[in-house]
Amino acid sequence: MKDNHSRFEICRRELLAGAAYFALGVSRSSATVIFDHLPWTPNAGDPPTAATPGPWLFFAGDEGKTVEALADRIIPPDPETPGGKESGSAVFIDRQLAGPYGRQDGLYVRPPFLKGAKNQGHQSEKGPAQEYREGLAALDKACKDQLGGKAFFELSDADKDRVLNGLESGDFKLDGVDGRAFFEQVVKDVQMGFFADPIYGGNRDMVAWKMIGYPGARYNYLDWVSRHNEKFPLPPVSMTGRAEWTTRTQR
């Protein structure tokens, strides 16, 4: 028992390193002693960080064009609703990959990295940012090698769809990258950007919410809970309101 016990004694250096890491990673992270009253201060909120407009933050070279092309085949434009490109899914993915998500912030990334069963979850040291970088490069190369020297974004829509169907079925292989898994990730992220609040760069002007009839960031349906099988009449709002409200305040 005694020997066992020493295994759990904590080295102060490790402890400090561990604690300091979290001081950076979590908001309101300094330890406090609370007594007598609730530790509440006005205007102490932690609102979301809006995606900044402007050039790509993560994508380099033709990566942005490729992801826009992917987004527009995964969610093609139609006369009523823009596609993945125009609605901003590539912007959403770029901002996510440039931020904490792309870097795997807060995830457990300690070694060893062993190959496990699929139901044991992601076991690679690579985070989403690196996987996108490698996946996009491999897609570019495979297209150029097999489709007359053209990059994915240069292909016709029919050829793009043939490539994507091939990735999905596993018939179109990428060099050094699991093409099917990469495509699944891209589909998930493009659709996530389409349905997330516009503050994150996708779903521009709430086009996806208008398309499906989702009223957005409202929080009171008391008058509507018992009105059954009636269409909810109000248009969507996002966390930043609606475009016309914003325009008015800017004038």
Partner: peptide, 29 residues
């Protein structure tokens, strides 16, 4: 607390709270 951590002005954020696990423990911790 509600006014600081999930006020009605931005609590309805599926990406932040559900998908990115804002209120949960971080696995690296």
């Amino acid at each position: 607390d509600a006014p600081t951590d999930f006020p009605p002005t931005y609590m309805q954020d599926e990406l932040r709270y559900r998908i990115r696990h804002e209120l949960f423990l971080r696995p690296d911790q």
